[in-house]
Design a protein around this nucleic acid. Sequence first.
RNA 1: GGGCGGUUAGCUCAGCGGUAGAGCACUCGCCUUACAAGCGAGGGGUCACUGGUUCGAACCCAGUACCGCCCACCA
Length: 858
Amino acid sequence: MTTPELPTQYTPADVETRSYERWVSEGLFRADPGSSREPYTIVLPPPNVTGVLHIGHALDHSIQDALTRRARMRGHEALWLPGMDHAGIATQNVVERELAKQGLSRHDLGREAFVEKVWEWKDESGGRILGQMRKLGDGVDWSRERFTMDEGLSRAVQTIFKRLFDDGLIYRAERIINWCPRCLTALSDIEVEHSEDEGELVSIRYGSGDSEIVVATTRAETMLGDTAVAVHPDDERYAHLIGTMVELPLTGRSIPVVADEHVDPAFGTGAVKVTPAHDPNDFEIGRRHSLPSITIMDERGVITAHGPFQGLDRFEARPAVVAALRAEGRIVTEKRPYLHSVGHCSRCKTVVEPRLSLQWFVNVTPLAKAAGDAVRDGRTRIHPPELAKRYFDWVDDMHDWCISRQLWWGHRIPVWYGPAGEVVCVGPDEQPPAGYVQDADVLDTWFSSALWPFSTLGWPERTAELSKFYPTSVLVTGYDILFFWVARMMMFGLYAMDGQPPFRVVALHGMVRDQHGKKMSKSFGNVVDPLDWVERFGADATRFTLLRGANPGSDVAISEEWAAGSRNFCNKIWNATRFALMNGAAVGSLEDADLTAADRWILSRLQSVVAATDAAFDEFEFAKVSDLLYHFAWDEVCDWYLELAKIQLSQGLDHTRLVLGHVFDALLRLLHPLVPFATEELWRAVTGGESVVVAPWPVVDERYADPSAEAEILALQELVTEVRRFRSDQGLKPGQKVAARLSLSGTAIAAHEVAIRSLLKLEQPAESFASTASLVVAGVTVEIDTAGTIDVAAERKRLEKDLAVAQKEAAQVAAKLGNEQFMSKAPDAVVVKVRARAEQAAEDIVRLEAQLKALPAG
RNA sequence: GGGCGGUUAGCUCAGCGGUAGAGCACUCGCCUUACAAGCGAGGGGUCACUGGUUCGAACCCAGUACCGCCCACCA
């Protein structure tokens, strides 16, 4: 094996691009549907094609890459399928903003030219994202990259639309929908974000004299479209008015008073103004009472009702209407500020206006039922389970899904209308009848995203990919799109794939936040650009930082200090491996090696770390995986084994090279899913293998479990640490050699005298050795000659403090052992432990008293 | 209004019934021939509060107080 010259400091940039291009060109990430290996599939949640990857994507991708890489190493045919989403409304907005800079609107270009423009934008922006993914090291199968508006995926969209339409699960209806007056499109319920906003609640007197009735509203301008006042049927205050007409101020119209169960008599005055065209509840009341709907606003929220308010924006009209009412003495009370929940467009934050319009809907009832059942019966497991409840709450009470959008960018609705308004839904292979006109609208972008797990594998064709890789193994995504995306993939996947859910496990992660747990936002200036970190700390360190905080379902707080810490870890691994190589580490059989306790200890520890790593990986506990490997590598391998190995090598124990080779081979493989680049470079150097990407995952080997070696090294560590403490307290310089006598015979670490003396810089004493301090640890007495320089007062203080602790411990433990109830009820293992503590405390007391006594006077 | 989660060292978090942990930050000493992005030794916590269960509670139960998130047709 050749020992390449590795630089003394890890410089990520040197190795990252080199490795990545090689991985791709050698096809290591390619998945073969014809393989006989068990499949492992993850579809990448497709990022928005117009965006750039943010640190949240980096987390999402790091997790998926770690899972896929480990699965591949474990012998699975691993597919991580990449792609991007056309993100209808978001993308259209971005391109429109660009046009606006040139003073143009999409209407200036016309539909065709505008869509052309968006495609151009998509090519440019999408390319940027692909570059970012390469920089992060995403091990995706590039040969299978997809885009939600690809020909194949468009075909899938039309196919499922047609199927749902034929099954009666897609319908067109005039309903109150959420309308964004800025984006000029309908929105689904979940595209509306609610916030507590300040408003004004005004009470308005309708009618007069005996027919007077007071209603309250926060949207005064809508009174122009009122067509009734509703009261509860049992409300005696208004019983005499039910069925009568009252005068509607400002309009010269009279409207009926109707009785409706929906009204809460205890709220406000118990009377509600009814505006069927501009409020979803009122629409329902209107329907129950056959009330007319009067639309008073256009699609931009401008008042169209004839009169003095015509042409005013809704927010100008509101105070104007109130002022006019006040002038007529119609205002009874005004409450301001009045906090109430207001819906905003999740894209542009404009206040949403409920609007009566003709739209396409999915009847979700049967689909949502199936989506709930699949999780309930365990076909799909949601992880962490706490979040499953959220899923059920939503799926069990889902409203029909408004899928039409008045946009130009997206999948055009595959429905044509005849001259007399006849409707025909056309599948992908059909021709619309002559003279029919296609619906102008496009589908909600989440409609095509919902097909992602199977449309990307070739559905509706029965492809080899589909039968090999569907259902996918795990879906990794943030809990924020549980409803938007996960639930809808479940619905459509179960529907299209004959009851087979799209994934076996949904592994939800949290949001990335700053070091104080604050949300990242541009205005706050705490946004981390993953590429910036990749440049400064390396992709490995960036990924490791994110994974170290990634507990299932919980948010990840990160900071630059942590990224630096992760980079330091990579550097540590780099240098440790470099050291092993410099000392001839090699992979070979350990069968005939005469292993020392230190060797057996590290091998024993290694096999239990493999087991613990597997357990944590299986539960998506990435923070735990990272923590385990971090501490094993740093605290055990580097801090202890390498130091002991140095001594063994100087003693000529050549098999140490094989142990080093074995440990680093395994450690680098374990770390590879988290830290792909550094491990690739190092693993190749250690083993001479082609690529760690396709190296087998370490397996637990019980034969290496060695409790007695572990106990032995633990005792060694205790002794060394205690003597180091003494040296430090006494101000002995680390390099300064000190004479000492060791009484090792009969102790567990009798064989380690050379190591102990070497680690602690203890020399053999001269003939006339007079000890000035003695320490007793792990059954060993260390008598140290410090040539009279010992600080007696400091050591006495220290010993007295330790003695006090030991005495307190002894008292506590004695109390426990004297407690009958404890003795009779505590499990044996606990009693044994407590007894051991009692013995230890007693020993400590004797030892410390002796040490105190042995101190020279001073 | 309904639901869920949190409150442990200065900061971010792990631990979830048997002697309080990690990373970073802090103090002291070290360029010890893999690594100063490092090495060694330390300091620091009535585990939010109040009750209860238990031989034993950071951990289980009840309540309180803050904090966060999700859902909701609060006129």
